[in-house]
């Protein structure tokens, strides 16, 4: 058998709409997108896909591969991945959907597409240094004391100010609304 035996008889006239998949592949964690064979095992093993029809990880990878950049970046779907990585235990090609969707989120965030809950939580943690300052009342302090635990949680608030200035500028994190 010659080397060319596997080549299609007629060249398929398919061009991705954009270089989105290359953009993803160029970032750490995104490189494996090149290996996806579109088998759908990820969708089959995903609990999110199991309970909502709108979420299909294989299909989202397909959209990236065919270059639907704007559609993917402005969608809430990449933010629905729980990063549980069950699919990547199953994927025979070593593709990490959690990583690919992190890269997508990173690009989306830079272009102003961040779901409100993510935006609000990031701003909160930048301000307080930790997530639950607002929920830590006398009631919880008493619980800790009764358990013999230190009620003074001693979180550092200063460092996050540096992180914010370095990576998010002075203003709160902004993001466009998702469809």
């Amino acid at each position: 058998m010659s080397e060319t035996a596997h080549e299609p008889r007629n060249k398929i006239a398919h061009e991705p709409k954009s270089t989105f998949s290359q953009e993803i592949a160029a970032q750490p964690g995104g490189e494996y997108i090149r290996k996806c064979i579109q088998c759908g095992l990820c969708t089959a093993s995903c609990m999110v896909a199991n309970y909502t029809d709108k979420y299909r990880p294989r299909k989202m990878v397909q959209k990236i591969l065919i270059g639907e950049r704007e559609e993917v970046l402005s969608s809430e779907l990449p933010w629905l991945c729980m990063t549980c990585r069950l699919c990547e235990e199953r994927c025979q090609e070593g593709v990490s959907l959690a990583e690919i969707f992190h890269v997508v989120r990173d690009i989306a965030a830079r272009e102003g597409h961040i779901p409100k809950v993510f935006k609000d939580t990031v701003n909160l943690v930048m301000k307080d240094g930790w997530l639950l300052k607002g929920s830590y009342t006398d009631f919880e302090q008493d619980d800790r004391t009764s358990l013999g635990l230190d009620p003074d949680l001693n979180w550092n608030e200063e460092f996050m100010k540096k992180v914010k200035a370095r990576y998010f500028g002075k203003e709160p994190v902004e993001g466009g609304e998702q469809e």
Partner: peptide
């Protein structure tokens, strides 16, 4: 949350 929006932060 931060993990999703900025890898460096």
């Amino acid at each position: 949350y931060v993990e999703s929006v900025n890898r460096h932060a």
